[in-house]
Amino acid sequence: MIIQPLYDAPQHAEQVTDWLWQAFGPAQPRDFFASIVNHSQKPGALPLTFIATEGEKLLGTVGLWRCDLISRQDLFPWLAALYIDE
Rank of each mutant, 00 (worst) to 15 (best):
D85I: 06
T49W: 03
K42P: 14
Y7M: 07
A9R: 14
I84T: 15
L46K: 03
L64N: 06
P5R: 11
D31W: 07
R72G: 13
G25S: 02
A23W: 04
L20E: 00
K42W: 11
F32G: 04
W21R: 02
W19Q: 01
G55F: 08
F33E: 00
P5F: 04
A52K: 11
K57M: 12
L58F: 05
L6P: 02
E14N: 02
E86W: 12
G60T: 02
I2G: 11
L64G: 04
G60W: 02
L6Y: 04
D31K: 05
W19H: 02
P26E: 06
L69P: 11
A27Q: 11
I84Q: 15
D8V: 06
G63Y: 04
A23K: 06
G60I: 01
F50D: 07
W19Y: 01
A13N: 08
L58E: 03
G63K: 07
V37H: 04
F76Q: 09
Q73W: 08
W78G: 08
D68E: 11
T17I: 01
L75Y: 12
L79E: 08
W65G: 09
A9F: 06
P5A: 03
W78M: 07
I2R: 13
I84H: 13
V16D: 01
Q73C: 04
F50Q: 13
Q28W: 03
F50H: 08
F24A: 05
V16S: 02
C67Y: 11
R30I: 01
D18H: 01
